[in-house]
Protein backbone atom coordinates (compact mmCIF):
# COMPACT_ATOMS: atom_id res chain seq x y z
CA UNK A 1 0.00 0.00 0.00
CA UNK A 2 1.52 3.30 -1.06
CA UNK A 3 0.18 6.31 0.72
CA UNK A 4 1.23 9.91 0.34
CA UNK A 5 3.90 11.45 2.47
CA UNK A 6 2.20 14.17 4.48
CA UNK A 7 5.05 15.39 6.59
CA UNK A 8 8.72 15.11 5.84
CA UNK A 9 11.20 16.63 8.25
CA UNK A 10 14.83 16.27 7.26
CA UNK A 11 17.79 16.96 9.53
CA UNK A 12 16.00 19.63 11.49
CA UNK A 13 18.10 21.73 13.82
CA UNK A 14 16.53 24.33 16.07
CA UNK A 15 18.51 26.48 18.46
CA UNK A 16 17.55 29.03 21.06
CA UNK A 17 19.87 31.97 21.22
CA UNK A 18 19.69 32.84 24.88
CA UNK A 19 21.91 35.30 26.74
CA UNK A 20 23.77 32.31 28.19
CA UNK A 21 24.55 30.98 24.73
CA UNK A 22 23.12 28.78 22.03
CA UNK A 23 20.78 26.08 23.33
CA UNK A 24 20.56 23.31 20.78
CA UNK A 25 17.00 22.23 21.45
CA UNK A 26 16.68 20.02 18.39
CA UNK A 27 19.70 18.44 16.88
CA UNK A 28 19.33 16.61 13.61
CA UNK A 29 15.82 15.23 13.74
CA UNK A 30 14.17 13.55 10.76
CA UNK A 31 10.55 12.48 10.75
CA UNK A 32 8.45 11.06 7.95
CA UNK A 33 4.72 10.67 8.22
CA UNK A 34 2.15 9.29 5.84
CA UNK A 35 -1.43 10.42 5.58
CA UNK A 36 -3.61 8.88 8.24
CA UNK A 37 -0.62 7.94 10.37
CA UNK A 38 -0.55 8.29 14.14
CA UNK A 39 2.89 9.04 15.42
CA UNK A 40 3.84 9.19 19.06
CA UNK A 41 6.80 11.22 20.23
CA UNK A 42 7.94 10.36 23.73
CA UNK A 43 10.73 11.66 25.86
CA UNK A 44 11.29 13.44 29.12
CA UNK A 45 10.92 17.15 29.71
CA UNK A 46 13.27 19.27 27.66
CA UNK A 47 13.97 16.61 25.08
CA UNK A 48 12.64 18.79 22.26
CA UNK A 49 9.27 17.16 21.67
CA UNK A 50 7.26 20.36 21.80
CA UNK A 51 9.79 22.41 19.87
CA UNK A 52 9.62 19.86 17.06
CA UNK A 53 5.87 20.28 16.84
CA UNK A 54 6.03 24.06 17.07
CA UNK A 55 8.50 24.16 14.22
CA UNK A 56 6.05 22.27 12.00
CA UNK A 57 3.65 25.19 12.45
CA UNK A 58 6.39 27.79 12.10
CA UNK A 59 5.77 28.83 15.70
CA UNK A 60 9.21 28.40 17.22
CA UNK A 61 9.11 30.96 20.02
CA UNK A 62 11.63 33.78 20.27
CA UNK A 63 14.68 33.53 20.58
CA UNK A 64 14.53 30.18 18.81
CA UNK A 65 15.42 29.72 15.15
CA UNK A 66 15.48 26.87 12.68
CA UNK A 67 19.12 26.82 11.72
CA UNK A 68 19.24 23.84 9.44
CA UNK A 69 17.10 21.22 7.79
CA UNK A 70 13.85 21.27 5.91
CA UNK A 71 10.22 20.73 6.80
CA UNK A 72 7.86 19.74 3.99
CA UNK A 73 4.23 19.55 4.93
CA UNK A 74 1.43 18.77 2.52
CA UNK A 75 3.27 20.32 -0.41
CA UNK A 76 4.50 23.37 1.49
CA UNK A 77 8.11 24.05 2.39
CA UNK A 78 7.53 25.47 5.88
CA UNK A 79 11.01 27.01 6.14
CA UNK A 80 10.51 29.29 3.17
CA UNK A 81 6.98 30.45 3.95
CA UNK A 82 6.21 34.02 4.91
CA UNK A 83 4.27 34.81 8.06
CA UNK A 84 1.10 35.43 6.04
CA UNK A 85 1.39 32.11 4.22
CA UNK A 86 1.99 30.33 7.52
CA UNK A 87 -1.14 31.93 8.95
CA UNK A 88 -3.19 30.51 6.11
CA UNK A 89 -2.17 26.93 6.95
CA UNK A 90 -2.22 27.24 10.73
CA UNK A 91 -5.54 26.05 12.03
CA UNK A 92 -6.52 25.14 8.50
CA UNK A 93 -4.23 22.31 7.43
CA UNK A 94 -2.41 21.77 10.69
CA UNK A 95 -3.82 22.31 14.16
CA UNK A 96 -2.45 21.93 17.64
CA UNK A 97 -3.94 21.02 20.98
CA UNK A 98 -2.06 22.30 23.97
CA UNK A 99 -1.18 20.69 27.20
CA UNK A 100 -3.18 22.84 29.57
CA UNK A 101 -6.81 23.38 28.63
CA UNK A 102 -7.16 25.70 31.62
CA UNK A 103 -5.09 28.43 30.04
CA UNK A 104 -5.49 27.72 26.34
CA UNK A 105 -8.90 29.33 26.08
CA UNK A 106 -9.31 33.08 26.27
CA UNK A 107 -11.12 33.72 29.56
CA UNK A 108 -13.06 36.76 28.36
CA UNK A 109 -14.88 35.17 25.42
CA UNK A 110 -17.58 32.53 25.32
CA UNK A 111 -16.46 29.26 23.84
CA UNK A 112 -18.91 29.78 21.00
CA UNK A 113 -17.10 32.96 20.09
CA UNK A 114 -13.76 31.15 20.12
CA UNK A 115 -14.88 28.23 18.00
CA UNK A 116 -16.47 30.64 15.55
CA UNK A 117 -13.23 32.60 15.35
CA UNK A 118 -11.41 29.50 14.14
CA UNK A 119 -14.09 28.83 11.54
CA UNK A 120 -14.38 32.40 10.31
CA UNK A 121 -10.62 32.81 9.98
CA UNK A 122 -10.27 30.14 7.34
CA UNK A 123 -13.61 29.62 5.66
CA UNK A 124 -16.12 31.74 3.83
CA UNK A 125 -19.03 30.69 6.01
CA UNK A 126 -21.26 33.47 7.31
CA UNK A 127 -22.00 33.86 11.00
CA UNK A 128 -25.13 31.72 10.97
CA UNK A 129 -23.37 28.89 9.16
CA UNK A 130 -20.40 29.22 11.51
CA UNK A 131 -22.78 28.92 14.44
CA UNK A 132 -24.31 25.76 13.01
CA UNK A 133 -20.87 24.37 12.35
CA UNK A 134 -19.77 25.05 15.92
CA UNK A 135 -22.85 23.26 17.27
CA UNK A 136 -21.94 20.35 15.03
CA UNK A 137 -18.33 20.39 16.26
CA UNK A 138 -19.34 20.36 19.90
CA UNK A 139 -21.60 17.39 19.22
CA UNK A 140 -18.70 15.70 17.46
CA UNK A 141 -16.45 16.01 20.48
CA UNK A 142 -19.18 14.70 22.72
CA UNK A 143 -20.45 17.75 24.56
CA UNK A 144 -24.14 17.59 25.27
CA UNK A 145 -26.50 20.55 24.95
CA UNK A 146 -24.09 22.35 22.61
CA UNK A 147 -26.38 25.35 22.10
CA UNK A 148 -26.21 26.14 25.81
CA UNK A 149 -22.52 25.42 26.12
CA UNK A 150 -21.68 27.82 23.32
CA UNK A 151 -22.88 30.69 25.47
CA UNK A 152 -20.71 29.71 28.41
CA UNK A 153 -17.32 31.03 29.41
CA UNK A 154 -14.27 28.79 29.79
CA UNK A 155 -14.28 29.07 33.58
CA UNK A 156 -17.72 27.49 33.68
CA UNK A 157 -16.45 24.26 32.13
CA UNK A 158 -14.44 21.47 33.66
CA UNK A 159 -10.95 20.55 32.48
CA UNK A 160 -12.13 17.65 30.35
CA UNK A 161 -14.84 19.77 28.75
CA UNK A 162 -12.35 22.51 27.99
CA UNK A 163 -9.99 20.05 26.36
CA UNK A 164 -12.91 18.83 24.26
CA UNK A 165 -13.57 22.43 23.25
CA UNK A 166 -9.89 22.79 22.36
CA UNK A 167 -10.19 19.70 20.18
CA UNK A 168 -13.34 21.12 18.59
CA UNK A 169 -11.45 24.32 17.78
CA UNK A 170 -8.52 22.35 16.39
CA UNK A 171 -10.86 20.31 14.21
CA UNK A 172 -12.88 23.30 13.02
CA UNK A 173 -11.35 23.33 9.55
CA UNK A 174 -10.71 19.58 9.30
CA UNK A 175 -6.93 19.76 9.33
CA UNK A 176 -4.73 17.17 7.65
CA UNK A 177 -2.53 17.00 10.68
CA UNK A 178 -3.38 17.37 14.33
CA UNK A 179 -0.55 17.91 16.75
CA UNK A 180 -1.52 16.97 20.28
CA UNK A 181 1.07 18.39 22.65
CA UNK A 182 0.60 16.40 25.84
CA UNK A 183 -3.17 16.71 25.51
CA UNK A 184 -3.95 14.79 28.66
CA UNK A 185 -1.26 15.81 31.13
CA UNK A 186 -3.51 18.25 32.96
CA UNK A 187 -6.42 15.83 33.14
CA UNK A 188 -7.18 12.96 35.46
CA UNK A 189 -6.91 9.38 34.33
CA UNK A 190 -10.53 8.64 33.42
CA UNK A 191 -10.79 11.85 31.42
CA UNK A 192 -7.46 11.00 29.79
CA UNK A 193 -8.88 7.75 28.54
CA UNK A 194 -12.01 9.49 27.23
CA UNK A 195 -10.02 12.14 25.40
CA UNK A 196 -7.71 9.60 23.82
CA UNK A 197 -10.65 7.49 22.75
CA UNK A 198 -12.27 10.56 21.27
CA UNK A 199 -9.16 11.44 19.32
CA UNK A 200 -8.82 7.98 17.79
CA UNK A 201 -12.50 7.98 16.93
CA UNK A 202 -12.28 11.38 15.26
CA UNK A 203 -9.17 10.38 13.42
CA UNK A 204 -11.03 7.56 11.76
CA UNK A 205 -14.05 9.78 11.05
CA UNK A 206 -12.32 12.59 9.24
CA UNK A 207 -9.11 10.79 8.26
CA UNK A 208 -6.44 13.03 9.65
CA UNK A 209 -2.97 12.29 10.89
CA UNK A 210 -2.02 12.82 14.49
CA UNK A 211 1.28 13.54 16.15
CA UNK A 212 0.92 12.71 19.79
CA UNK A 213 3.52 14.22 22.05
CA UNK A 214 3.68 12.85 25.55
CA UNK A 215 5.89 11.45 28.24
CA UNK A 216 3.29 8.87 29.13
CA UNK A 217 4.08 5.62 27.38
CA UNK A 218 0.73 4.18 28.40
CA UNK A 219 -1.18 6.68 26.30
CA UNK A 220 1.05 6.18 23.32
CA UNK A 221 0.60 2.42 23.37
CA UNK A 222 -3.18 2.65 23.03
CA UNK A 223 -3.30 5.06 20.12
CA UNK A 224 -0.15 5.17 18.05
CA UNK A 225 1.17 2.97 15.32
CA UNK A 226 4.64 4.35 15.33
CA UNK A 227 6.69 5.76 18.17
CA UNK A 228 9.76 7.95 18.26
CA UNK A 229 11.78 8.25 21.42
CA UNK A 230 13.55 11.57 21.79
CA UNK A 231 16.39 12.41 24.09
CA UNK A 232 18.23 15.73 24.31
CA UNK A 233 17.02 16.98 20.96
CA UNK A 234 17.78 13.77 19.14
CA UNK A 235 15.72 10.79 18.11
CA UNK A 236 17.34 7.80 19.76
CA UNK A 237 14.96 5.07 18.70
CA UNK A 238 11.97 4.78 16.43
CA UNK A 239 9.75 1.91 15.52
CA UNK A 240 6.29 0.40 15.78
CA UNK A 241 4.62 -0.05 19.13
CA UNK A 242 5.62 -3.67 19.24
CA UNK A 243 9.23 -2.82 18.43
CA UNK A 244 9.46 -0.24 21.19
CA UNK A 245 7.54 -2.09 23.87
CA UNK A 246 8.67 -5.65 23.32
CA UNK A 247 12.00 -5.23 21.63
CA UNK A 248 13.56 -1.99 22.85
CA UNK A 249 17.14 -1.59 21.75
CA UNK A 250 18.26 1.72 23.18
CA UNK A 251 19.24 1.87 26.83
CA UNK A 252 17.12 5.00 27.30
CA UNK A 253 14.02 3.32 25.92
CA UNK A 254 14.65 0.37 28.18
CA UNK A 255 15.02 2.74 31.10
CA UNK A 256 11.75 4.47 30.27
CA UNK A 257 9.92 1.17 30.09
CA UNK A 258 11.44 0.01 33.39
CA UNK A 259 10.25 3.18 35.10
CA UNK A 260 6.57 2.51 34.34
CA UNK A 261 4.69 1.23 37.38
CA UNK A 262 3.43 -2.31 36.78
CA UNK A 263 0.35 -3.99 38.13
CA UNK A 264 2.09 -7.21 39.07
CA UNK A 265 4.83 -5.75 41.25
CA UNK A 266 5.17 -6.84 44.84
CA UNK A 267 4.13 -4.52 47.61
CA UNK A 268 6.62 -1.79 48.56
CA UNK A 269 8.71 -2.51 45.51
CA UNK A 270 10.32 0.73 44.39
CA UNK A 271 10.02 2.08 40.86
CA UNK A 272 13.21 2.02 38.87
CA UNK A 273 14.09 5.56 37.81
CA UNK A 274 16.70 6.52 35.25
CA UNK A 275 19.52 7.86 37.37
CA UNK A 276 21.08 11.25 36.75
CA UNK A 277 19.79 14.32 34.98
CA UNK A 278 19.55 15.22 31.30
CA UNK A 279 22.56 16.86 29.72
CA UNK A 280 23.00 20.60 29.65
CA UNK A 281 21.78 21.64 26.23
CA UNK A 282 24.05 24.68 26.29
CA UNK A 283 27.08 22.43 25.95
CA UNK A 284 25.84 19.22 24.37
CA UNK A 285 28.45 16.47 24.50
CA UNK A 286 30.16 15.35 21.35
CA UNK A 287 29.08 11.78 21.86
CA UNK A 288 25.79 10.15 22.73
CA UNK A 289 23.84 12.54 24.97
CA UNK A 290 22.60 9.66 27.09
CA UNK A 291 26.10 8.32 27.77
CA UNK A 292 26.55 9.93 31.23
CA UNK A 293 23.39 8.20 32.49
CA UNK A 294 23.87 4.94 30.61
CA UNK A 295 24.76 1.82 32.56
CA UNK A 296 26.47 0.27 29.59
CA UNK A 297 28.37 3.34 28.55
CA UNK A 298 31.50 2.62 26.55
CA UNK A 299 34.49 4.82 25.75
CA UNK A 300 33.33 5.53 22.24
CA UNK A 301 29.94 6.70 23.49
CA UNK A 302 31.56 9.75 25.07
CA UNK A 303 33.41 10.69 21.89
CA UNK A 304 31.08 10.11 18.97
CA UNK A 305 27.39 10.11 18.26
CA UNK A 306 26.33 6.68 16.94
CA UNK A 307 24.68 6.28 13.55
CA UNK A 308 21.22 4.77 13.23
CA UNK A 309 21.25 1.00 13.10
CA UNK A 310 18.50 -0.51 11.03
CA UNK A 311 16.84 -3.33 12.92
CA UNK A 312 13.83 -3.70 10.65
CA UNK A 313 12.21 -1.53 7.98
CA UNK A 314 10.81 0.89 10.51
CA UNK A 315 12.74 0.04 13.64
CA UNK A 316 15.84 2.20 13.94
CA UNK A 317 18.06 2.82 16.91
CA UNK A 318 21.10 4.98 17.49
CA UNK A 319 23.32 3.16 19.95
CA UNK A 320 26.94 2.01 19.91
CA UNK A 321 25.96 -1.25 21.56
CA UNK A 322 24.12 -2.27 18.40
CA UNK A 323 27.07 -1.27 16.28
CA UNK A 324 29.26 -3.33 18.53
CA UNK A 325 27.02 -6.36 18.18
CA UNK A 326 26.97 -5.93 14.42
CA UNK A 327 30.74 -5.63 14.40
CA UNK A 328 31.13 -8.73 16.53
CA UNK A 329 28.71 -10.62 14.33
CA UNK A 330 30.58 -9.70 11.18
CA UNK A 331 33.87 -10.62 12.84
CA UNK A 332 32.42 -14.07 13.34
CA UNK A 333 32.87 -14.16 17.06
CA UNK A 334 36.60 -13.82 16.52
CA UNK A 335 37.39 -11.26 19.21
Amino acid sequence: MMSNILLDIKNLKVSFFTPAGEVKAINDVSIQMEEGDVLGIVGESGSGKSVTSYSIMGLVPFPGRIIDGTIDFNGHRINDMTEAELRSIRGNEVSIIFQDPMTSLNPVYTIGNQIREAILLHTNLNKQQAYERSVELLKLVGINEPEKRLKQYPHELSGGMRQRVMIAIALACEPKLLIADEPTTALDVTIQAQIMELMTELKNKINMSIILITHDLGIVSSVCRKIMVMYAGKIVESGTIDDIFYNPKHEYTKGLLRSIPKLNTKEHEKLVPIEGTPVDMLNPPAGCPFAPRCEKCMKICLREMPEFTKISDIHYCACWLLQKEAFEASAGGNK
Binding site: L59, P61, R87, R90, G91, Q99, D100, L105, A118
Partner: peptide
Protein backbone atom coordinates in the same frame (compact mmCIF):
# COMPACT_ATOMS: atom_id res chain seq x y z
CA UNK B 1 3.01 34.42 27.35
CA UNK B 2 -0.36 32.81 28.08
CA UNK B 3 -1.29 29.68 26.22
CA UNK B 4 -4.39 31.12 24.64
CA UNK B 5 -2.24 33.60 22.72
CA UNK B 6 -0.11 30.78 21.35
CA UNK B 7 -3.36 28.95 20.63
CA UNK B 8 -4.66 31.94 18.69
CA UNK B 9 -1.40 32.08 16.76
CA UNK B 10 -1.67 28.39 16.03
CA UNK B 11 -5.12 29.06 14.61
CA UNK B 12 -3.64 31.51 12.15
CA UNK B 13 -4.76 34.78 13.74
CA UNK B 14 -2.79 37.83 12.62
Amino acid sequence: EQDFITAAKALGAS
